[in-house]
Amino acid sequence: MTQEIHGTIADGFEGVREEFAAFVAGERADYEGQLCAYVHGRKVVDLWAGTDADALYGVFSSTKGAAYLVVALLVQDGTLELDRKVTYYWPEFGAEGKGALTLRDLLAHRAGVVGTDSGFTLAELADDRQLAERLADQRPFWRPGTAFGYHAMVSGALVGEVVRRATGRTLQEVYQERIRAPYALDFHLGLPAPQEPRFRTTQPMAPTPDQQALLDATPTGPHTLASIAYNRNASEPTDLASLPNMPLIRAKGPASVGGVASARGLAGTYAAAISEVDQRAPLLKPDTVAEFGQFHSVGYDLVARAHRSFGLGFQITADVAHPFLGAGTIGHSGASGSQAFADPWSGLAYGYTRRRFAFPGGAAPENDRLALAIHRAALAL
């Protein structure tokens, strides 16, 4: 039985509803997902299936986008300087040969501290300050600044500690006060207890036989960079798919993986970043968006063991995933399949969530067709 499509679209975006309906028709009967988009600050797509518009989902690494928006805002204010050494703000970080690393390189996944030799406990993963304390003493896994690799579980804690040292406030507090609350965004770094009933537990999706064969053929030793980066080297290896199902993770909102959001929240956050929304000026100036969207690390990612592109924190979504997007697009996907970005050229802000963990992780494949349909409609305006 195909899920019914609910929600609204603006004139000119009828094809987006059709594309979403066609995708949902080919999915499992228990599919749950939401799709939302803004163009120049106006909501033009607000669709969902198998759930309701107010449901909240764990968005995994899409959380990082909110963290990097905080950093961008503080750089814009002059509170942070990209080319200062991290140790200017956080002296302890200089241990084990990390003293020359700049904030710019830290944001670009060039620090080399993707994890620790012994891994983290769940309590540490939930608490960015504990993570930062462990990482300050960690020997880097490559010479800082010479290469890059995705700091999957720790990048939010690393930049969060710089934010805390510079402002006296946690990254989560700055996000709440300057971004989430003023725009009433449904994107939380620390889910308030009264909002808990809206949360939908993440459900893993079993791989197909072909996908399982690929997994079986991929080396996954406990001490590879990938295993260290995803905390599979811990005494209790992390089950990534289950992280947002843990109340401690939702309550603390670690800035790498702990965010909880609706598609409206994801899209609304990026709309506020680049556009006037509800008569509020954009959070970021065009020059700030342009700098954070510049290519900073591009090529072979030592953790992913594949071609990747990063700006200042943000994934360069327009490189491989969505090459139709404008240069300088900022955004981030999440392991469950979520995706969120802002394209300053078209004025498009996009958000997508789903309940079942999409194989193999990262932006779910349907984002390709959904984002393309919305982008085409946005350009036609």
Rank of each mutant, 00 (worst) to 15 (best):
Q339D: 15
K98G: 06
N367R: 06
G97P: 08
S235Q: 14
D216R: 08
G115D: 10
T317V: 13
L35W: 07
L101S: 09
L82Q: 03
R104S: 15
G299H: 08
Q279N: 14
A206K: 15
F141V: 11
E291S: 09
P144I: 01
S262T: 07
N231H: 11
V289N: 12
L122N: 10
E4I: 13
P244D: 01
A318Q: 13
R169V: 03
L56I: 09
T269R: 07
P194C: 06
T102K: 02
L248Y: 09
F93G: 09
T201F: 10
R308I: 12
L248T: 06
L47A: 09
I228H: 14
V44F: 11
D52K: 06
A321W: 14
A53P: 07
G265P: 06
V45F: 04
Q172L: 01
L125A: 04
V163M: 03
A22R: 15
R104L: 10
L312M: 07
W142R: 06
G26N: 12
T224A: 11
G149K: 09
E92F: 01
H322P: 03
T170K: 03
L266E: 02
V163E: 05
D287P: 05
Q130V: 11
A378R: 01
T224P: 14
T116D: 02
R143E: 14
P91L: 05
E18C: 02
A217M: 09
I179N: 03
H223N: 15
G331Q: 00
A55R: 15
G112K: 07
M205I: 12
P254W: 04
V174L: 01
G258L: 08
P344H: 05
H6Q: 14
G149L: 05
L69K: 06
A327W: 14
H332Y: 05
L370A: 04
A100P: 02
L82F: 04
F295G: 13
G94T: 00
S333T: 11
T288L: 06
K85W: 05
A378H: 06
R305A: 11
V289T: 12
Q195E: 12
S346W: 00
L73I: 00
V70N: 01
K285M: 09
V162T: 01
G362R: 13
E276M: 08
H332V: 02
A281F: 13
R305K: 14
V24Y: 07
G259I: 02
L302H: 15
Y352N: 05
T317L: 09
L103N: 03
Y38A: 04
L73H: 14
Y352M: 10
D11L: 13
R369N: 03
Y230V: 13
P207G: 01
H332N: 08
Y300P: 08
G160S: 07
C36K: 01
A229V: 02
A206Q: 15
